[in-house]
């Protein structure tokens, strides 16, 4: 990068001195002074933006594209550490017949879907009720707190609260909502619930901040016009705020959705997929295949499939949302 910059510098310097000589020959010192301010040749100018973004692009390629391509390549082999044997699409044909894969996919959809819906509803409701509040306007950043904690710390907190420390059970019992200690990992839905609660607690603020921002950016005159037209707060929300926020909601929910499909930390720390694989998400399935059972090729194939599914789903949702928003 530096070398390249120096190169184009010296090139333009040569260019410049030529110009200077010409300028002197024409006896126009003012013009010569002017040409000092234009050091870059056309080619250097064209290259300049690429040179600026180059390092970041290289870095990103190195940590995302290379491993991605490597996984795709590896997914075509049966890998036992250093022994790679060509499998073609063998891993893929095995995966589509693997009931655990489909279960993991289903779990991801159930846990992720419920969690995402809850987060969106809670964030939207809270945002709509408090976005005009001066405290929220001034201090909205403090609502980000849960997001700033380390995911593993959050997972341990909730593991303590639900399982090891029995905090939630105690609370429920003292409120009279449970008669004895609840074993959260004993039932499919209770175990899933613990994961959903942890995720909602940590990530609702993300959506909340975006929604509050969108609502605050809304033209106040439009809201006032709607009030004078006879609209109640709820009809303002359904008829005006919500449709106007649609693109922002779609983008925010898609981002959060993509993130949720890779849910791993909470599963790893809180449930480890129990009971009976009911909380095993795709990420955990891939981890288990790769790092517990050392089926690297198989895990890679699952990753590739997951990537494809995520891209297709996200693309369909975004495309559809923006299309119907336009008409």
């Amino acid at each position: 990068m530096l070398v390249a910059a120096r190169l184009c510098r010296s090139k333009s310097m040569a260019h410049l001195s030529q110009k200077l000589e010409k300028g002197a020959a024409k006896a126009a010192p003012a013009a010569a002074v002017y040409s000092v301010r234009r050091p870059r040749s056309a080619a250097a100018k064209k290259m300049f933006p690429y040179l600026l973004v180059g390092p970041a692009v290289l870095y990103l390629l190195a940590i995302t594209l290379y491993p991605g391509l490597f996984a795709m390549y590896q997914s075509l082999f049966v890998v036992k550490f250093v022994n790679w044997s060509w499998a073609g699409l063998g891993n893929y044909t095995r995966i589509v017949q693997d009931r655990e894969f489909w279960a993991a996919l289903g779990n991801t959809a159930i846990i992720g879907g419920l969690s995402l819906s809850l987060q969106t509803i809670i964030a939207m409701t809270v945002a709509f009720f408090c976005y005009r509040d001066p405290f929220v306007r001034g201090w909205r950043i403090i609502f980000l707190m849960p997001m700033l904690f380390m995911p593993s710390a959050v997972a341990f907190i909730w593991k303590l609260a639900f399982n090891d420390g029995r905090v939630i059970s105690d609370l429920l019992m003292s409120l009279g909502l449970a008669s004895n200690n609840v074993d959260w990992l004993s039932s499919v839905w209770l175990a899933r619930l613990t994961l959903i609660v942890a995720d909602v607690w940590q990530w609702t603020p993300f959506l909340f901040i975006i929604f509050v921002g969108a609502l605050q950016g809304q033209d106040e005159e439009i809201e006032e016009a709607a009030r004078l037209d006879g609209a109640s707060w709820s009809s303002i929300f359904w008829n005006i705020s919500l449709p106007m926020m649609r693109p922002i909601i779609v983008v925010a929910v898609t981002l959060r959705g993509i993130d949720i499909t890779t849910m791993f930390t909470n599963v790893y720390i809180m449930t480890q997929g129990t009971p009976g694989g009911a909380t095993e998400t795709m990420s955990y399935f891939i981890y288990r295949q790769g790092f517990r059972m050392f089926n690297f090729g198989y895990a890679s194939a699952a990753s590739v499939l997951m990537l494809l599914i995520t891209i297709v789903v996200a693309q369909t949702i975004v495309k559809r949302a923006f299309k119907s928003g336009k008409s």
Binding site: D219, E221, I222, E224, A225, A226, L228, I240, R246
Partner: peptide, 14 residues
């Protein structure tokens, strides 16, 4: 039962 016309029109863009 009052109708108002605003400076910035305040039409519902959606």
């Amino acid at each position: 039962d009052v109708a108002m016309v605003f400076q910035g029109y305040a039409l519902y863009p959606n």
